[in-house]
Simulated scan of single mutants.
Amino acid sequence: MKTCPELVQQIMPNIKTISIDELPAKLEQDNALLIDVREPGEFGQGHIDSAVSMPRGVLEMKIHQHPAVQNYDSPKEALQALADYDIYLICQAGGRSALATESLQRMGFENVYSVNGGMNAWQNK
């Protein structure tokens, strides 16, 4: 058995991460999306302006509904279009975004990054 922190540590070498200091410059690029994977109540208490709320529990089922790809006829087409973006995932401290990053990689996304330190780091910046 593994604890959640142990699982996160195990997957870290297999995912891409970005520091909170690098995030603002990355978000200025046209092909960048920021997805906040925290729960709606957490998102409502404060978030980065460009973030779209998609809680970790429904991310894989709802990512094809991201506003950036809302004009596609099928979920598969929307996913293909999303693959052209750099996707940055943020949570409160970095654990949920790391797990979400691994999951999106298994779905086929290559340009997906977990934001180290999450909103805690953003707010302490």
Rank of each mutant, 00 (worst) to 15 (best):
I90H: 06
Y72C: 09
M12Y: 09
I35F: 06
G117Y: 15
D73C: 03
A100G: 04
H66F: 02
E102Y: 14
N120Y: 12
H64V: 00
G118T: 13
P40G: 05
S50C: 11
N71K: 14
A32K: 03
R56L: 04
G95C: 10
H66C: 02
L34S: 07
Y88D: 05
Q105V: 12
V52D: 08
I90R: 06
V112Y: 13
M107W: 10
F109L: 09
I11Y: 10
K125E: 08
M54A: 00
Y85I: 00
D49P: 12
A81D: 07
N111F: 01
Y113S: 06
P40H: 06
G117M: 13
F109W: 06
R56A: 01
E28H: 06
E42Y: 04
L89P: 02
K2G: 01
T101W: 07
P75K: 05
F43S: 01
Q29A: 13
L104P: 04
Q65N: 14
K125D: 03
L27R: 02
Q123P: 00
Q65F: 02
V8G: 01
P24L: 05
Q45W: 08
Q80H: 12
V112H: 11
V52Q: 11
L89V: 03
L7Q: 04
A121F: 10
L33H: 01
G57W: 00
Y72K: 12
Q123M: 09
M12V: 12
E77C: 07
Q123R: 11
Q45A: 14
I87F: 03
S53C: 12
L79P: 00
G108P: 10
V115L: 09
K26F: 10
P24V: 06
I11V: 15
D21A: 09
E28N: 13
I48K: 14
I18L: 14
F109P: 07
S74I: 07
D30G: 02
W122R: 05
D36S: 03
M61Q: 05
Q70Y: 08
P5M: 12
Q65G: 00
H64W: 13
P24G: 10
H64K: 07
D30S: 13
M61K: 07
I15R: 08
R96Q: 15
K62C: 02
E102I: 04
K62W: 01
A51F: 07
Q10L: 12
L23D: 05
Q92F: 04
E39L: 12
G108D: 09
I35E: 03
